[in-house]
């Protein structure tokens, strides 16, 4: 039935692929402790840049927890030219172990530190 190396190769790749997918999921299901989502925000203040619309501070949000979070609202606060500025972004989804790139905008370069707070999220 399996006459040539191409058929053997197909079979080998197939077995590896199927065992790999099912194995990875099963191991994950058994061993990963599905803790609650833990969004962690890291701002790259050094990489901030000026645009016509204002000052943009890029950063990343990662989820160190075991479960995905949905509709995560993050609020960044900073003092700009003496007055407090606040802005929010919403992420549709934040899967466990995945990193998402975000950016916060301010009217000008903030005077001090930019702090980011997790306002809330939904569990899927």
């Amino acid at each position: 039935m399996r006459q040539n190396w191409a058929e053997w190769a197909t079979l080998a790749v197939s077995v590896v692929a199927v065992v790999g997918v099912i194995g990875a999921l099963t191991l994950d299901g058994i061993f990963t402790d599905a803790g609650p989502p833990e969004p962690v925000v890291e701002l790259q203040v050094d990489a901030a840049y000026q645009t016509e619309a204002g000052w943009i501070v890029p950063g990343t949000v990662s989820n160190d927890g075991g479960e995905a979070a949905e509709a995560i609202v993050l609020r960044a606060t900073a003092s700009v030219a003496g007055s407090e500025e606040e802005n929010e972004i919403t992420l549709d989804y934040l899967p466990a172990g995945t990193r998402v790139e975000v950016s916060f905008g301010f009217s000008a370069e903030p005077d001090g530190e930019v702090t980011v707070q997790t306002i809330g999220f939904r569990l899927p």
Partner: peptide
């Protein structure tokens, strides 16, 4: 197996699986 390979290539080409995707998410 063929389906897994096709799905993997398609997800890569569509940019749904990348370096920042966690293994669990990709699988």
């Amino acid at each position: 197996g063929i389906a897994a390979v096709v799905a993997t290539v398609a997800m890569l080409l569509l940019g749904r699986i990348g370096l920042e995707t966690s293994l669990r998410d990709a699988v």
